[in-house]
Design a binder for these strands. Sequence first.
DNA 1: CCTGAAACCTGTCTGC
DNA 2: TGCAGACAGGTTTCAG
Length: 273
Amino acid sequence: MPELPEVETIVRSLKQGGITGESILNRQIHAADLFWDRTLAFSDPGTDFLAWFSGKSVDGVSRRGKYIVISIPPKSLIIHLRMSGDIRVETDDAGTLQKHDRFLLRFADGLRMVFNDTRKFGRIWLTATPETLFAALGIEPLSEAFNAEWLRTNLGARKTAIKALLLNQSFIAGLGNIYTDEILFQAGILPTRKAFTLRSDEIERLPEIIKSVLQTGIKNNGASIDWVYRGGNFQNHFQVYQRAGAPCYRCGTPIVKDVVGQRGTHYCPYCQH
DNA sequence: CCTGAAACCTGTCTGC
DNA sequence: TGCAGACAGGTTTCAG
């Protein structure tokens, strides 16, 4: 499900209330529960993971790439939703838990935060040193530091397909399959283009297009497809994603779907070069 | 270093 | 209706 805009929407909701339910800020934790052991990717050695939470309070919620960072001093609980993860906040008497619930925090005031993940790819970490986890992550695409100059410097002589490079989290942190296809359409660049072949005018425009598509996604609370993620509206703005065979909104040419870097890839063979 | 395939999982949809 | 196979928002690991 989640790429940067969906994760950002969930983070804002956990802070201010929204699609996940009420805010979790400043709530004291009563207990934690883990229902699928492999969901826990890492916990600092010497800590009893489940017991640790009792009595601690949520101090902040933020995002790095597609990671959700919940500050619970002196540690951070980090959640990556991967393909099918979702978070909801509800009252603890909201009824029985759901089929694919993997982890939860019970708050002292009767609320609970539940991590649900059908495909079990999602992971959580509990650590006092989250920087270690993020050491290899690339630049934040919505930061000021991410601009044409940065891209020109870092594109270098990379021979990989531009789509694969944009998906590489150690290059730029947060782009996924949907937004990458939409970005490359807006940029008029074929997904298979080798990164080093981008012209200077394309490099100049690309960072602004990336920011603009991500911001549009965030404004729409992300994209909701199938059963996985609810609350978003960006799916109604797709230009190419999931539009194989349908006419391009710009030129009428049927949108093509191929595989690039092992991912389904949608593009307009006329508008993108 | 880069590339591709496979693995990790469950659910849905398509075609025979 | 049943069933096999393909496919899905992501990332890691391993072979070449």
